[in-house]
Amino acid sequence: MAFDRWATGGLLVLAAAAASAEPTADRQRELVRLVRQDCGSCHGMTLAGGLGPPLLPERLRERGAAAMVQTILHGRPGTPMPPWQPFLDAAEAQWIVDRLLEGFPER
């Protein structure tokens, strides 16, 4: 029990450390691909919108970055937007939002 708690605590510390770090270059490429290809199946590969709303900078600046991170991680109940938490951590969601706000990389 004590060991379990210690191990879990250790993992949390590691996860927190990972969450504060910028994604590695390899991971950034994966994230760009995920957004373009998989988010793109609803928001359009050019992010100009589809079943989901556009994710272009001018449309996103009106919404707070923090709310967007929450939407990515937890989805929007009552809409088709699913939680992406199984695929992303908070730092990665933040990195995606930062890129979306400045104009998302092509690849």
């Binding site: 998989d38 609803c42 079943l51």
Partner: peptide
């Protein structure tokens, strides 16, 4: 009601 009222899983592609 084919889902029998159960919460549906998040849908990552229509």
């Amino acid at each position: 009601g084919y889902g029998r009222g159960e919460e549906k899983l998040p849908v990552y592609k229509m």
